[in-house]
């Protein structure tokens, strides 16, 4: 079976995409950065500030076949 990755969105990014999460095929990220993929899916998303976390670690680098989750995190606002 093809490997799938869960993409999770938070805060204003979830508001912009209209969803909290979605499953994508790992192959959609072959030869493409996460940012490129997101820009393609959601044109204009690059106007927002966000950080990417791959399997709970802040990183832009993702090995699609070995990734469980990609989180798209807007600016932090704790406290």
């Amino acid at each position: 079976m093809d490997h799938k990755i869960n993409i999770v969105y938070f805060g204003q990014i979830a508001e912009g995409t209209g969803k909290q999460s979605e499953m994508i095929e790992a192959k959609e990220l072959h030869n493409k950065s996460v940012r490129e993929f997101l820009n393609q899916q959601y044109p204009g998303i690059d106007q927002y500030a966000f950080t990417i976390a791959v399997d709970n670690k802040i990183s832009e680098i993702c090995d699609p076949e070995n990734t469980r989750e990609i989180a798209v995190l807007p600016p932090f606002a704790g406290g």
Partner: peptide, 14 residues
């Protein structure tokens, strides 16, 4: 602690 929490923890506020 307070600086690290504000800077590094993925919490979002509406």
């Amino acid at each position: 602690l307070v600086e690290a929490i504000k800077e590094r923890v993925p919490i979002f506020g509406k």
